[in-house]
Design a protein around this nucleic acid. Sequence first.
DNA 1: GACAATACCAAGCAAGCGCTTGGTTTGTAA
DNA 2: TTACAAACCAAGCGCTTGCTTGGTATTGTC
Lengths: 219, 219
Amino acid sequence: MFQVELKASYANRVAVVSQNQILQSLIAENLVSDPEGARGRLLTEAARLFREKGYERTTVRDLAAAVGIQSGSLFHHFRTKEEILKAVMVETIRLNTALMQAALEAADTSRQKLRGLIRAELESINGQTGEAMAVLVFEWRSLSAPSQGEVLELRDIYEKLWLDVLESLKREGALEADPFVVRRMLTGALSWTVTWYKPERGGLTLDGLTDQVMAMMAL
Amino acid sequence: MFQVELKASYANRVAVVSQNQILQSLIAENLVSDPEGARGRLLTEAARLFREKGYERTTVRDLAAAVGIQSGSLFHHFRTKEEILKAVMVETIRLNTALMQAALEAADTSRQKLRGLIRAELESINGQTGEAMAVLVFEWRSLSAPSQGEVLELRDIYEKLWLDVLESLKREGALEADPFVVRRMLTGALSWTVTWYKPERGGLTLDGLTDQVMAMMAL
DNA sequence: GACAATACCAAGCAAGCGCTTGGTTTGTAA
DNA sequence: TTACAAACCAAGCGCTTGCTTGGTATTGTC
């Protein structure tokens, strides 16, 4: 019991450190905005508000007030309100793709790789980037068609990481079902956790949650 | 192979008949609106539009045009726009609770009951009531807090049907995980199918989909 | 055929929306 | 100090929104 907790705690610390390192390198490459900077702070607040009230119900005045400027001043940073939504989504996918790649590199077997992906996605959904992940799921339709196309391209890269692992498992005989179907079921099950999972109460840790998902798949 | 298809086809026909019977009796009890009537037609169109464009992006003028009246005339049937959203949700939950109860009565063992619930929910999500089900999932935040409370009460009845079956399975030793967690994972996985499952192409039937879900749970 | 009740229309109001404009402050570097 | 760009403000424009109003068809009932 104590050993398990120690192990989980150690794994957590390692994960957090590597998460920050990945974030820093993405900032350095200008692929995501520094959350300390003006643009990054706005995107963080935007994700929070979009998740809390929905994109349409969030006004540019709300967004401006959240970072302490006038509503008109927003348009020096972004040409339209929609561009803010798109930026939230694009940067979220970029960060998560990098996180998943790191999770894959840290694992050896296909089974471990899948567990790493599940664990990492649960972390994204329920951790610091959770608000932005929820926006990605629930505010999809508020993007214009062209923007949807752009975001979709990025998402395909992300999804391929999952499919490669699931296809390996299928080739190895550990998985019976269609990898496409399984990935989609997992997408639904994992992203839905954002509506109910509260780590602080209930005693279910992220590692425990990951275990239950693996058990559900008989892996 | 042919036997399986015949069986599925037969099961389908039985399901459709009983679905219509249930709908008729709910209409007779005034618990849901007749889709042939004026109110029912509006709710059907509303569900379609809310799903397609989202509640906020759908204007009362859109709703009125969809049933061929002036926007002001809507307010003889509903006091506010939000009342339309609430009606869509309430009637959907009522119908689905009845459908789930019927699925339970048609099954003997706990395992069969669970399969019946999964099959019935997939049918709701991807069948005729699919648009309303999607609204229930994705437009939740657009309801005012008081309305959310009312709808939540109805949903608790619905969710209890699931939990009873899952708790039976746990008592019987067929399920290891926490019933609450499992139900929530299933909620996510099943409702997410609305974003990708297209029965016409791909050759995956609703029964096939149900089988894959059961297999994912090692049942 | 009289009479409600119901369903609807035509017009528009008040409020809130995204976004623009013209001008001021702040930061930076020579 | 000067020069200049980036960041911001104060004000408000034009449009769309949910909803109201006063009046007119349509429907069902005895």
